[in-house]
Amino acid sequence: MTARPTPAAPLPLTVIGGFLGAGKTTLLNRILRDNRGTRYAVMVNDFGALDIDAALVEAHDGSTVALANGCVCCSIGDSLVDALIDLVSGPRAVDHVLVEASGVADPKRIADIAVVDPALARNGIVVLADVSEIRRLADDRLVGDAVRRQLAVADIVVLTKVDLVEPGAVDDTETWLAECAPRAPRIRASLGAIPIGPLLGLDAAAVATVLEPAPARGEGADAHRHEALFHRAVLRDLPIVTRARLAAFAEGLPTSVLRAKGFVELAESGQPHLLQCVGWRHSIDATPAPPDVPRGLVVIGTADMPDAATLRRALVDG
């Protein structure tokens, strides 16, 4: 079970993009069902499309459905801005906001709301791409520009329905995607088996828990925590580095790294700062974290991601 952020901690906001049929609804249904204690607010255009178990519904007021497991589904209605303001200012306690971006929306505009709102934390843009459809859609006269824009701003691209086409075709599509979204890590997923943990990452409290000194485990990979396709490296006892050094490390992470998060002591302030990487984008909090947070980084990636020793070298030696 994920620890809940304190009321003051910003609420992670993740944008789920992708065209019709890419598997967004399947993913959201799984998140709502297998939420392991995290209370998700799922904002969608039409929650009629979600497969909400009627037995779970606690309250339904027209634009919002509250579930017994603490999750809530909100209809975006006329204005996402209004719906988000209501959610953020409202009394309902949630741990994580997921916004479904329609296939023609610009996910960056949505994710940027979390950049300007201190009550929210930008937790990335995840774009789903159906391998059998994405290239045709990208050339579609009416929607091709929107489809390409979504890929271009994605932090992580998930290739879905890979089990429905020939492996060679998946490779071809991935080569093509590497041109549309050269910096975004790509994950292959069969329908209904999209890995949720690596996609949504850990919240700050969970990162702190992972980083608590655990001599028995030590530093290294603990792949058992995730599907075997994904690896995790935990880096503890990091040296003090400059902000520029840390930024260069984040910039230089390979596309096999999906997410990295943790607290690193900066030479400039002498205090720990939160580093977050989602796909190819990173941020380093300007304000220091509390002095007692455990120092270290949790790095999540695909099976071919660098090991902990390599990552440490990249941070220390450049």
């Binding site: 801005v81 209004d82 953020v88 200012s89 505009r109 709301i113 950049v115 300007v116 709102d117």
Partner: peptide
Amino acid sequence: QEAPATYMIYRTIGN
């Protein structure tokens, strides 16, 4: 110009 730039005005000052 438009959301997200205008978002925090509506959120903190009202609409």
